[in-house]
Design a protein around this nucleic acid. Structure first.
Lengths: 335, 335
DNA sequence: CTCACTCCCGTAAACGTTTACGGAAGCCGC
DNA sequence: GCGGCTTCCGTAAACGTTTACGGGAGTGAG
């Protein structure tokens, strides 16, 4: 934990000025033997540049922040997993924020960007986009990329998916299998995905000519235990032949509940999750799931941010990742 | 992306010196109406302090780094999940490094601590502890906490688990169920957990009076697909009545393989994983797994680091987290 | 020999904070 | 009315870099 050498130390040992040291270390044109002297001194002293001083002067931290609701959720893990290597390859560190889906926390992350501890931010808000969010986004002191849909004219890079299409794919698949009583286990309606999926479910039903039956819909939370409870509540008052779950965790909970109720999957109830996380293939029967391309969304977001850091003036871009349906045993029968 | 206000801006607007502004913002004793003026100016301007300038002066970044092999591995996710809130509560940000288990990457993380971009580091090395590691650890420019066992006299805080006991618990459990031909699917032997678990397996067999049969041991990698391949190889040449897997991912792969070979779990082959990740409860049958307390290790590591940041001089501490066996359906039959 | 030009390098300022130091103002007791 | 104390604040230095600017040495041409 010794006090490290600074360019001043190196300059003294090499017998040159700190300016020369800095030039050598940054590869600016310098005479050959000065380079050698400085390099030798730096090596001997084990010099490592000080990040704080460098960013103070250059206004670059080479850090990027990623804010999401919960690192325990495999969707976000998939994103982080893709974001990290992209940033690393470009020489950036990753700062991780878990907001627990708390709006104040999210706003706080946005505000503290002003501390300039990071050059940019990727945020995947769970709740939110009150006017307050939008104001902060518009006036953000550093580039921000939002994963999730942002209102039309918000001047921000944006990676979105089309959960409407995703839900439709799932319902069409179930309809095609002859299921007509398709229940829906959703997450909280005050979350962005919760609200979007609720609307999409209603629309997709209508498109298929199926009636909307409130008894077939339950709202819980995006966790496994909550999914199980929601499934039990739903099964108490109706008997669907299929269940769409707003994410894979809920689907796992539903699987637990169905097992307890001695209902077979998929024979009695076909089950579809969303997000297509690794849990979908760990479960048994393996879960049919709507892939919303979390990994790809993460990667694209990181790329957008890096582009933006290169060229701050370019017009905001919107990238849309198409959902796909990954069919597995929980709807199509035995493995 | 406007240029933010600095304490100089505030000082001008409030009609005081920058020293007064700094004092007010840091809560040092100041006259009441100066406080008001400064606060008013700061609020109006939306002042946010600059992190780089602050850390340059104070030598504190309020960041902590965590380096692990692979954020896709649920073990590390469990750690991050615990580490993050502990740090956040203490006002620290989390910087995440994925090393892919690459030794050079690990060394690089250690070296770059010298940039002082973080006040401390939690590292969970997968390979390593060559002399090079130890030298770097000893001379680290900031406190380091290692998750995983470190040689006896390394002057570093250390959170370890006792995988020897963990493996013994698993084998005793299987032995108690009447299993006598217990196979072992391990990860690479040049990794720390791989080597430790191999030795523990041999010892535990001996303690139970069972012979060591090389045909019952297969080495692969810590991934699901590798686990499946290893299981297939093992099943080609022997017919165990139980399989211990060096982590849950391998166990999931083994489950895949066993299913393909039409072997029933646990009737034909009892299956035990390690790490007790969420995958263990997602699988079917649910997986008996040796919990190595990943979550707790993460939390304890974060706490150790925070303590160390308070008091750098205290003697290095070693915390040991006891493994436990979580028995589920993959050894004890129907749910 | 001198002038102009080039090539390197050193001096010093700047980034936005924190903080040591000393000065000004007010108050008290004598 | 003056010395001494306290309280508050401003000046300036410092943290470790990067970089604008200008000066000195060397070269070549006239």
């Amino acid at each position: 934990m010794a006090q490290g050498p600074t360019i001043t130390t190196i300059a003294a040992r090499a017998g040159v000025s700190i300016a020369s040291v800095s030039r050598v270390l940054n590869g600016l044109p310098t005479r050959e033997d000065t380079i050698r002297k400085v390099m030798a001194a730096a090596d001997e002293l084990g010099y490592v540049p000080n990040a704080a001083a460098r960013s103070l002067k250059s206004n670059r931290t080479y850090q990027v922040a990623f804010a999401m609701a919960d690192i325990g959720n495999p969707t976000y893990v998939a994103m982080v997993r893709e974001i990290q290597p992209v940033l690393k390859a470009a020489g950036y560190r990753l700062v991780l924020h878990s907001t627990d889906g708390d709006v104040d926390d999210e706003l706080d992350v946005l505000r503290r960007l002003g501390e300039r501890y990071a050059d940019g931010l990727i945020i995947s808000p769970l709740r939110g986009f009150a006017q307050q969010h939008l104001d902060l986004l518009a006036g953000a002191p550093a580039p921000v990329v939002v994963i999730g849909s942002v209102p039309q004219d918000t001047p921000v890079d944006n990676v979105r998916t089309d959960s409407r299409t995703g839900v439709r794919l799932a319902l069409e698949h179930l309809y095609g299998l002859g299921r007509r009583s398709i229940g829906f286990l959703n997450g909280p309606l005050d979350t962005i995905p919760g609200a979007a999926r609720a609307a999409a479910y209603t629309d997709a039903l209508a498109a298929l000519g199926l009636p909307y039956d409130p008894d077939l819909v339950e709202v819980g939370d995006f966790y496994r235990a909550a999914g199980a409870r929601a499934a039990h509540r739903l099964l108490e008052r109706s008997r669907p032949d299929a269940l769409l779950c707003a994410n894979d965790l809920i689907a796992l909970g539903a699987l637990d509940a169905l097992r307890e109720e001695r209902l077979r999957v998929p024979e009695d109830v076909a089950l579809v999750g969303m997000d297509d996380t690794e849990l979908a293939t760990a479960a048994w029967p393996t879960l049919t799931s709507v892939s919303l391309g979390s990994a790809e969304r993460g990667r694209r977001a990181a790329e957008l941010l890096l582009d933006r850091l290169e060229d701050g003036a370019a017009a905001p871009r919107i990238v849309t990742v198409e959902p796909t349906l990954v069919v597995r045993a929980s709807t199509e029968g035995a493995s």
